[in-house]
Design a protein around this nucleic acid. Structure first.
Lengths: 411, 411
DNA sequence: CAGTATTTTTTCGAGGCTCGAAAAAATAGA
DNA sequence: TCTATTTTTTCGAGCCTCGAAAAAATACTG
């Protein structure tokens, strides 16, 4: 149940608001912050001098601001990069990567590693993750004190509390509470995020004009995933990370999906499905892993001649189109970003997709729906994890006073 | 962009919180309110004495409370029925009904009227609505001053701002800004709500244990509609009321839907679709209106013998099941309430529905998904409109100080 | 029936917070 | 050097919430 606002919440929230305004704007002056937050100049002055004294914000050197106007020049406020740092851990198929990001969002350290996620036993997989984190933490160049958060991203389904991986295509293992494991191991608050959700978060930061309040990020890769932002907020299911667009039903009883069921969108539009159709294999054939290079070659063949390859992409487009149509029936149309290796073949997918969506109620204005493509998902996922972790730091760590009342983490 | 909290917002929000706690609990004592809101006893004491002085709350007569305990007895606080009143206007197929509801939620006046919505020209339809509202307002028994809000509900799509009907099956007319029309005519703030959303709001009040944070209300009637509550909040689309579950795609290119497209869930599960299938008509046959009595007779025949009638309900169940499966893939499973005349035939629908949902990713725990039925949607819609209107009064009218900063209504 | 225990509600002073107005600071132009 | 202009800080006023203590209202007890 919602709860009253106590007097001490006031400062906490307004501090968080100032920090978030600075993170968004980069180098805003106090006057600009007052304008965007709606708070008075006096309040902004008080809060920002507190934040500067605490080393969270820093005034930028004079002369850095651009065109000089008459009057006292504005002093830009920026995030102090040394105020804190966060760590991102991204686990994808056969690949593990970590990065340390300073409070201003700059990457200060990185490590990547290949491993065989599909066959790894549970302990080993967890061990690899904790080991790589530990290596970064033990780096003598790093001030360990400053790591305030870890955000881990993974392909697959996570729980809505962002504590655990429930299911993932990269491993047969299920229900690994990575967030709890990392917290127990390192004593640093951690969350376990869904990869597509992080893509959406990253897009929101990268292109705020285009992706702000309502948009959809769809991962076109081995599987089909989705990150959904509605009314400016990341959408999650009631129990899990939700948004399993790839497992909406396209054709009841249809093609065999990697999830073991039939007729899912993914069973027509996932890499393995496109490959299966392009190879004229049965729709009942077991899904197989297809490498990115093979997919690129497949797309090239499809562009060359009008054969089964092209037809396979057409079928993918149709499935995505009807799926989006159903989605749009629920949430109304919104801009879409297509991410992942098959996004590079969106030219092959788009015609059938638009044709399908035009046949649905949600596609009423299908011509006005914009599609963006971004073939490389990993940088987006990393960036999203970083921004998410920093957001937590902004909100929780640097907003003092009473702890969030329904907080999950013990102090 | 989110905005800072100003000092005067504090009282406003906490007042709203107290009012809402009273509305929810009925006759809570100050101590109970303090417990549910998390505010201190002093604060609750101060706010409630203000609210009593303003005539918004009233202390209940002593002796009304139940079991006597030791110590000073609790004094129950209740909403003062005379503090305000709201009006609901529900427009459905060939039927218009209004009600006046006092601040405590009791119906104090009603009027209903048959009319031919399908053939009525625009001016006449609007005229009927304003006329019936005017008749109620001019009732000498009614203190017009006290009507603080009008909530109008209609079958069909409304805009996400709750200002206008965009499309409705009850009339060929489109884009009628009923909220603006009523406001201009009577000078009373008004909203135009989607019928299924109001069903959901009503269920939330009627059965808070069952329907609280996440649930789905599905209207099984001529058309198929949905009201969705996620994380305790009514879900709407980005532009429209959204949640057009009936127009998710069940079978691409399939049966002809009333919306003119093909393969929508509604084209298999709407009354007209069940009728069409039961009559062994082509799936391309034009949708026709079927009366409730005819539908009840159809259900009776389906229960009697295993013929095309039963098969028609089976197909409806299948479409609903796959649709729900797709929906659950996005939002995770949640309790469902089936409302409307075909909810009375849910026994015929349920087996196929469960079978279908079990074949989807969203139906993983299909046995644990609960279905409730309620054959009569109109009372729910009315109740939802009433609660919604009262909620606005609670939040806006009785929370003084600065107006909501992005308010739509001029003071 | 008076006194005690118990629970609810109010009162009161302290401490915070935001705000508006005015002052101070810092610069460009004249 | 002086003036106009813009940004930032300072300061007192006005609210708000809180905790502690007091007051109020009742049941129990002998």
């Amino acid at each position: 149940m919602s709860v009253g606002i106590r007097h001490d919440d006031l400062r906490r929230r307004n501090r968080a608001m100032v920090i978030s305004a600075v993170r968004r704007a980069g180098q805003p002056s106090r006057t600009e912050i007052a304008a965007t937050t709606g708070l008075s100049h006096s309040t902004i002055s008080a809060i920002s001098s507190d934040l500067i004294a605490e080393g969270i914000l820093a005034e930028s050197k004079p002369g850095e601001t651009g065109a000089l106007k008459r009057g006292r020049p504005q002093v830009g406020l920026g995030l102090n990069p040394e105020a804190a740092a966060v760590m991102t851990v991204v686990l994808s198929l056969n690949f593990l990567s970590v990065a340390v990001i300073d409070y201003a969002g700059q990457v200060v350290a990185e490590e990547q590693r290949r491993l065989d996620t599909l066959t790894m036993p549970r302990d080993e997989l967890i061990g690899e993750c904790t080991a790589i984190v530990r290596r970064r933490l033990e780096d003598p160049d790093l001030d360990v004190q400053s790591i305030a958060r870890i955000a881990m991203g993974i392909q697959g389904i996570t729980d809505s509390q962002a504590r655990a991986m429930l299911w993932s295509p990269i491993t047969p293992l299920t229900d690994i509470a990575f967030a709890d494991i990392l917290e127990a191991e390192f004593g640093i608050p951690a969350t376990m995020e869904n990869d597509c959700n992080m893509m959406a978060v990253a897009l929101q930061w990268r292109q705020p004009e285009r992706y702000r309040d309502d948009f959809i990020a769809i991962l076109l890769s081995h599987g089909i995933g989705m990150g959904l932002v509605l009314k400016g907020e990341l959408f999650t299911g009631t129990h899990s990370s939700g948004g399993e667009f790839g497992h909406m039903i396209h054709r009841p009883g249809g093609a065999l999906c990697r999830c073991g069921r039939r007729g899912c969108v993914e069973a027509y539009a996932g890499n393995y499905a496109i490959w299966r159709n392009a190879s004229m294999m049965s729709e009942d054939a077991e899904p197989v892993d297809v490498g990115d290079a093979d997919m690129r070659a497949l797309a090239a063949r499809a562009r060359e001649t009008d054969g089964p390859e092209r037809e396979a992409y057409r079928k993918a487009g149709e499935a995505l189109g009807f799926g989006l149509g159903s989605l749009f029936a629920l949430i109304d149309p919104a801009p879409v970003a297509m991410v992942g290796v098959s996004a590079a073949a969106f030219d092959l997918i788009e015609p059938a997709l638009r044709e399908a969506i035009a046949q649905t109620a949600g596609g009423q204005h299908s011509k006005s729906i914009s599609f963006d493509t971004e073939p490389n998902e990993l940088p987006l996922i990393r960036e999203g994890c970083a921004m998410r972790a920093l957001g937590f730091v902004d909100q929780e760590i640097f907003a003092p006073g009473i702890q969030a009342r329904s907080g999950k983490h013990v102090a």
